[in-house]
Design a binder for these strands. Sequence first.
DNA 1: ACAAATGATACAATTATGGTATCATTATCT
DNA 2: AGATAATGATACCATAATTGTATCATTTGT
Lengths: 131, 131
Amino acid sequence: MKLITRDTDYALRALCFVAKSKDRVVSVSQLVDSLKIPRPFLRKNLQLLNKRGVLKSYKGLGGGFKLARKPRQLFISELIRIFQGPFQLNECFLKKRPCPHKKECVLKKKIDNIERYVIGQLDSITLADLL
Amino acid sequence: MKLITRDTDYALRALCFVAKSKDRVVSVSQLVDSLKIPRPFLRKNLQLLNKRGVLKSYKGLGGGFKLARKPRQLFISELIRIFQGPFQLNECFLKKRPCPHKKECVLKKKIDNIERYVIGQLDSITLADLL
DNA sequence: ACAAATGATACAATTATGGTATCATTATCT
DNA sequence: AGATAATGATACCATAATTGTATCATTTGT
């Protein structure tokens, strides 16, 4: 069970690279060259980051991507949510139906606590920490 | 991202049932009746629990399963490991090759810390807590 | 106008998870 | 001893999530 999937991992590497480029616009080609990430995959993910307001994109010749915010404002938890959906260690679904013991389930309570801790930790890591 | 998969979930439910049956031997049929878990799937998983020394099995007419240990001695973490493999929030693999920055990776260090915490928590929950 | 970039989107491959089927083996009961 | 009721072993299949590819449209700088 992974906390971070490949998309998120790639995105982090790419974002670090972009962050280090300061105010210069970085193209996909440059990222592919230095990070060895499959091009179409990377493109798709960068486009998503653009939509979600993490990157700012520039079309046309000389175009590419820049960070849309300061690294300090970019939390790992947000990236995980973008690529892996809402953080949920617990599902409480059984054969497509919500488990009827949700309310009083001891295990659920314990896992909910763990989840709160993990989210708290992830909320304390920003892109700046990885530079 | 789920902390507990269906196998583990089913196993927990089944183990609770078996635990509540005290020293009586419980057959797969009884478990299927009351837990509505697909029979062949449950069977496979109980067999695995038997191999791993969590359950004790009895063949032949009137056979079935009993707990091999006291509920207090049965940790959730062990079940997770049985059905989901060794606990590892971090993979540090990229395209089948270990990531070269493993040593100094800031993110890895943070996730390792989270992992230690989660394992600690899971090590503190036993089957007895769920009865 | 052209070329170099991203935007949108649909598709394909691989892997993990969830589930099924079948035959062999063992133990009990008569 | 033989029939039956249980688990043991194992191989297979289905579905969903993850990972990766391909293609055409749109925008922009020269």
